[in-house]
Design a protein around this nucleic acid. Structure first.
Lengths: 192, 192
DNA sequence: CCCGTTCTCGCACAACTGCGCTATCAAAGG
DNA sequence: CCTTTGATAGCGCAGTTGTGCGAGAACGGG
């Protein structure tokens, strides 16, 4: 097979990311049950056939989108890791995984839909486990920055995700100020 | 309209509850996205048409099932309220809403699926809000029993639901012993 | 027995789903 | 120009969805 004429028209990876973003928007707006080849294609502005050219099956699409979301949040956390110290640094790290503004709340909402579905969708389990480990390690770092002991990690971790859950499901009862206040009080208790 | 001949063949409410239980089993086993008139009817051992005789629309069915789940948990909590005191009483109250055994874990899993969907399904919002208030009031009672102050309610509430989330999504990382241990340690801190 | 009511069933419809197939289009090398 | 190859569009198929509609079974009162 002599390679003659190698048309590489579009950026494959960029296209896959764009489709994944479209899927995340659909999950955010209409829920994960509204995700289908057609709805995501419409959101991405293409046809279902074009979409299928980049993702063989819809499970593959879902998994890719979840990994993209995970990578995005992970990158944000890692970019903070070097230049933040003390309790203030702990706070800014944890704010990356908490619904402290609209963008973060959207992410948590999508994350919640994904992990909930992963309970009955074996193909998503591994990614959900990975996400769990990522959030947990962020909490470990934060507890260290706040001057806490290893034994403080578990309670802090549960508190953080409880805050994420409540702040996302009932944002007007638990708005960003509330989330931050509870978190600050808890972190202060770790140092003493 | 003379009422003559009033055949009351089946217990209407009992039938509705049986159907709701079937729906909860489907959510637990296959996820909420697998809920359909036909799957629930099959699980309940009847035909889709018979099911539609008790629930006009499927939104009505979903709402009824969620209310049934809420009532069941609420009854369990209320039955404990009179005869339990102190930190041990607080623990037993909170265990009713935490995944400390298979039955409770199933309930939390279904609850999680419901509230997640309620984010994009307006017809479920009111019920989700009610469920939130119920869990929160249980935590308020528990904090009181444990000798905590009103300011302890928020952190405890977030911790409890974070524990519920982690214990349900990753049960082998956060088994019942872990859930109980974290909770006991937290409650002990409230009294001091 | 019959009658009225409740209940149950099965069918049908239109809309949707994932997915496969084929035809067309765009760009690059000859 | 033509050819090759990736990208896209469209159609169709079989299955599932919610929801109507009509026929008939089950049962209580007369």
């Amino acid at each position: 097979m002599l390679e003659q004429g190698v048309p590489k028209l579009v950026d494959h990876d960029a296209r896959r990311r764009a489709v994944a973003d479209a899927l995340l928007r659909v999950v955010r707006r209409d829920g994960i049950h509204a995700v289908s080849v057609r709805t995501v294609a419409a959101e991405a502005g293409t046809s279902p056939s074009a979409l299928r050219h980049y993702f063989a099956t819809q499970d593959e699409l879902l998994a890719f989108a979840m990994l993209a979301l995970l990578a995005r949040t992970g990158d944000r956390v890692r970019s903070l890791l070097g230049n933040r110290t003390g309790p203030a640094g702990a706070l800014s790290v944890l704010e990356e995984v908490l619904p402290v503004d609209d963008e973060r709340r959207d992410e948590v909402q999508v994350w919640l839909a994904f992990v909930t579905r992963s309970l009955t969708e074996p193909s998503l389990r591994a990614i959900a486990d990975e996400a769990e480990a990522a959030v947990r390690s962020a909490v470990e770092v934060a507890v260290g920055l706040a001057g806490g002991a290893p034994a403080d990690v578990d309670p802090t971790y549960h508190l953080v995700d409880g805050l994420a859950l409540h702040g996302t499901l009932w944002p007007h009862r638990y708005p960003p100020e509330h989330v931050r206040a509870v978190l600050v009080a808890h972190l202060a208790g770790l140092a003493g």
